[in-house]
Design a binder for these strands. Structure first.
Lengths: 135, 135
DNA sequence: CTGAATCCTACTGGATACTG
DNA sequence: CAGTATCCAGTAGGATTCAG
């Protein structure tokens, strides 16, 4: 039959979606910078350069794995620079590039939005939860 | 002994981190709106209200589960409204609230940033990958 | 049409230990 | 100090199916 199953149609949609992503790779980048750790690291570095362990302390809940991973990703994207000072012990500084600082401004704006409207959102949540018959 | 093991110190850090999150719940909200699907849904609704299936088509790669989940979350946060028209079949419209539109502006700015600087990031990635001894 | 429920996989990301 | 490597749990999220 001319049966296009739901699965086939869905897969087709995914193929088109992949093509869409290729033709519009902006979404990949958007997804990347929408990452939790990216926001935190960029925010942490916004005031000025920091060392690896400084970042780890400033962000607190982060594991070394995620910290390194995020830093590498941001370095690869040209959002920050990694400077190794071959002293003993080694010292590594991370600093936002102009591009990174540019992005930091936007993320700061989003953060400010969250601070400004948090109580509003919070009240909305309580209202919603109260109305919901917890079922 | 006064032995604070690494585990203890780490756990202590997590406790403090939790307290930090409670005292500064903005981060939770920031994390929430940094979600991939949140960005996509808010962007999709920015031009105007849409029905459930319209959203599913416009966002393409999304599964009904994630779409519903994201919409519920945004509704709970007061970022959009859900309007049910009890016709047959049922019709449900989603529309950004003023708060949601406000956020949409910021996310649009971030999206614009991504579009503007994508080639720069892309070149940085190629440079990075070329320098990296693929090890 | 608009979801809700279930199942299941794959990836995220934390803990831990080890290296230069 | 600044990572790297390994292991492993939790969960995000896709596929599928069913209901109102």
């Amino acid at each position: 039959m001319a049966t296009t199953t739901a699965a086939q149609r869905r897969e087709q949609a995914r193929i088109e979606y992949d093509a869409f992503l290729k033709s519009c790779p902006t979404n990949q980048l958007l997804d990347r910078i929408s990452d939790k750790w990216v926001s935190l690291v960029v925010s942490a570095l916004a005031p000025g350069p920091l060392r690896y362990s400084d970042l780890g302390r400033k962000i607190a809940g982060v594991s070394p794995k995620m910290l390194t991973q995020t830093l590498r990703s941001l370095e690869r994207d040209g959002l920050l620079t990694r400077t190794v000072t071959p002293s003993v012990p080694v010292r590594v500084d991370y600093e936002l590039t102009a591009l990174g600082q540019n992005l930091a401004l936007l993320l700061t704006a989003v953060k400010t939005w969250a601070e400004t409207h948090f109580d509003e959102v919070h009240r909305s949540r309580e209202r919603y939860d109260a109305e919901t018959p917890e079922g």
